[in-house]
C-alpha cells in the first residue's frame, strides 16, 4: 500500500502545547515538511518569537534561536549577514511583527534582506490570553476590546503584506491560510516558494498565514475555520500580494 502521509522526520516526537484547533501545529508541521523535502536541515536556522510560537525549538529538529519579542527580523538579519550560506527565517505572530516589531520587520523588508518571515496572523495575542492584536478585526471582541474593536479607540486592522508591498526591497509576499485542506496545500507551496527564492538570492520574502485561534475567538474548532473564510479573509484577502519576477 502506498504511504501518503507520515510525520516529517524533522518534527520532533513531542506533544504540541497548542490549544485544540489552533493553526500553529499545522504551520509547524508544514515548515518541517518543506525543509525536509528541500533537504535544508543542514542549512536552516529559525528565529522563534515571543508568543504562542515561542516553543518551536521543542518541535523543530533544526537550529533555533529564541528572539526577544518583536526583534525576529533584526536577529535574522544579523544571522544572515554574518552567515549568508544559511537559510534564515523568523516565525512571528501578529503582535510580534505588526505591533512591537514593526520597525524591525519593516526595515528588514526595506533593505531587501535575503530572509523569510513566516507571519502567523490569528488576530489576537494568544499566549497572554486573547488581548487585541494590531490585526484584530473591527467589532471583534477580545479581552482588551470587550465591547468589540472600535476604530476610534483602537485604530484599524493592519494589513502587513499590503504595507510591505510598497517597499522596493520586498520580493515575494503571499497571504495564505490553514483552515481547510486546500488552503493548507497552498500554504505549503508558499513556504517552499519563499525558501526557494531565498536560496536563489532574490531577497525578502514573507508568507502571512491566517490561522484559527478557537480558544481566544471563543469558538469551536470548525466554527473558527469557517470564520477564517467568511469573515477574516474579507479583511485579509488571500493570494499573492507581490511577486517580483527576477
Amino acid at each position: 500500500m502506498k504511504k501518503v502521509y507520515t510525520r516529517p522526520k524533522l518534527l520532533k516526537e513531542a506533544h504540541f502545547h497548542y490549544c485544540l484547533g489552533c493553526g500553529h501545529g499545522i504551520i509547524n508541521r508544514l515548515i518541517m515538511e518543506v525543509i525536509e523535502e528541500m533537504n535544508l536541515q543542514e542549512k536552516a536556522i529559525c528565529v522563534a518569537p515571543a508568543g504562542c510560537g515561542m516553543l518551536l525549538y521543542n518541535y523543530f529538529e533544526i537550529d533555533v534561536l529564541e528572539s526577544a519579542h518583536g526583534r525576529g527580523a533584526a536577529v535574522a538579519t544579523g544571522i544572515k549577514r554574518a552567515s549568508p550560506q544559511n537559510l534564515v527565517f523568523s516565525y512571528q505572530g501578529d503582535g510580534d511583527l505588526a505591533a512591537i516589531g514593526t520597525a524591525e520587520g519593516f526595515h528588514a523588508a526595506n533593505r531587501g534582506e535575503n530572509i523569510t518571515i513566516i507571519f502567523v496572523n490569528n488576530g489576537v495575542y494568544g499566549m497572554t490570553g486573547g488581548q487585541m492584536a494590531p490585526t484584530t478585526l473591527l467589532t471583534q471582541v477580545t479581552t482588551t476590546t470587550p465591547a468589540g474593536r472600535d476604530a476610534l479607540i483602537a485604530g484599524h486592522p493592519v494589513r502587513i503584506c499590503e504595507v510591505f508591498a510598497v517597499l522596493d526591497g520586498t520580493s515575494y509576499l503571499e497571504r495564505v491560510a490553514v483552515n481547510k485542506p486546500s488552503a493548507v496545500i497552498k500554504t505549503k507551496k508558499a513556504i517552499a516558494k519563499a525558501f526557494q527564492r531565498q536560496l536563489d538570492g532574490r531577497g525578502f520574502s514573507l508568507v502571512e498565514i491566517l490561522s484559527p485561534c478557537p480558544t481566544n475567538w471563543k469558538m469551536g474548532a470548525i466554527e473558527a475555520c469557517q470564520w477564517v473564510d467568511e469573515v477574516m479573509s474579507k479583511q485579509f484577502p488571500l493570494g499573492v500580494v507581490k511577486e517580483v519576477a527576477c
Binding site: 533584526a74 554574518a82 520597525a103
Partner: peptide, 26 residues
C-alpha cells in the same frame, strides 16, 4: 565585512545577537 546602519539601537543590538550566535565577532 558586515556593516549595517540599523533602524534603531534596539535593532542594532539584536543584529549583534544574531551575528554572535553564528560565531562572528560583533
Amino acid at each position: 565585512r558586515v556593516f549595517i546602519q540599523s533602524e534603531s539601537e534596539i535593532a542594532a543590538i539584536n543584529m549583534v545577537l544574531g551575528a554572535s550566535v553564528t560565531g562572528a565577532r560583533a
